[in-house]
Computed example of a mutant assay.
Amino acid sequence: MNFADLKPSELRREIRAGCWRSPTAGLAPGYVQANLVVLPKRDAFDFLLFAQRNPQACPVIDVTDPGSPVPERVAPGADLRTDVPKYRIYRQGILEAEVTEITAYWREDLVAFLLGCSFTFESALMAAGIPVRHIEEGKNVPMFITNRQCVPAGIFRGPMVVSMRPIPVELVVRAVQVTSRFPGVHGAPVHLGNPQQIGITDLSKPHFGDAVSVRPDEIPVFWACGVTPQAVAMEAKPELMITHAPGHMFITDLKDEELSIF
């Protein structure tokens, strides 16, 4: 079976059945992928405010009703407890487990947030002739914790996480133009070039995901990343936060162009 050819609902069915447990980059081209954050209702408003204050790192595309695992706006009939390839469970800021479903963890007071993911604009990058190295190399995108602090809200505070894609020098401006069309999935890069300026000392040692090759004619380009809430969880230490495992996204029924501004 060629998973890349499946529609979002078909992919979610395969994920629910345990047939896909890998990163989702390159799947469902043309459809929006999303980061997942699940919190108790008592922390949900603080997180919504945090996301509103940090829209580039945490662009909200859907929020469920308390106790409901169904993202009615972006994938009616889906189940956020089973339709993500891998999840992470954080308690008091400590990573407790990585699991393949969260049915046993689900509670009636839980609220799920879906945040735009940069995997969404990768189809547009490739259509513009811009290479996406982690897809070429069959890896997860490299992600790094930076020295840039998010704007705090309530209990939530912490550093921005970025994803990195090496881009040929002559295509950097085009990459900025292409991704700027998609503010709902992180938009334009937050940094170009020297990684040390944002606190990254070694591109071969990402905090999340896999290292990828950077060629002599390329520069590293960094986009805000929806793994930011996981770094925030480690610092803010909420009672419980459930997330996707980095790179293992929820695939929605939304088309990319629905989040494009032009």
Rank of each mutant, 00 (worst) to 15 (best):
D202E: 13
H186G: 08
F119A: 08
R88Q: 15
A78R: 05
G154S: 13
S68R: 12
Q149N: 06
E101N: 15
T103Q: 14
G199A: 12
V185Y: 02
A124R: 12
M1E: 15
A25F: 07
I130W: 11
A4T: 09
A153W: 00
L192I: 13
D109G: 06
N194M: 02
E218L: 12
E10V: 09
I135E: 14
Q177P: 03
Y87Q: 02
F262V: 14
E14Y: 14
V172S: 02
P246N: 00
G154N: 12
Y90W: 15
I89M: 02
T243D: 05
D210G: 10
A236P: 06
N140W: 01
G193F: 02
G93P: 00
I130Y: 12
V151M: 07
Q92P: 00
R215P: 05
L80P: 02
C58N: 03
Y90K: 15
P76K: 11
S22W: 04
P220W: 04
I94S: 11
D256C: 06
E170F: 05
R16W: 11
V151T: 15
R13D: 11
V111I: 10
G18P: 14
P142I: 03
P238A: 03
A104N: 15
A17G: 10
G93E: 00
R215I: 01
L80M: 07
A128M: 10
S123K: 12
V169P: 03
R73S: 10
C117T: 00
L49V: 14
R91W: 04
H191F: 04
P229A: 00
E170I: 10
R165D: 09
C225R: 08
V162M: 13
G187R: 00
R181D: 12
V212E: 13
S163I: 09
R16S: 15
T120L: 10
A224I: 09
W106V: 15
P216T: 09
C19E: 15
D256K: 01
S213T: 15
R21L: 13
V60K: 01
G67K: 02
P8C: 08
H248M: 02
D256A: 13
F121V: 03
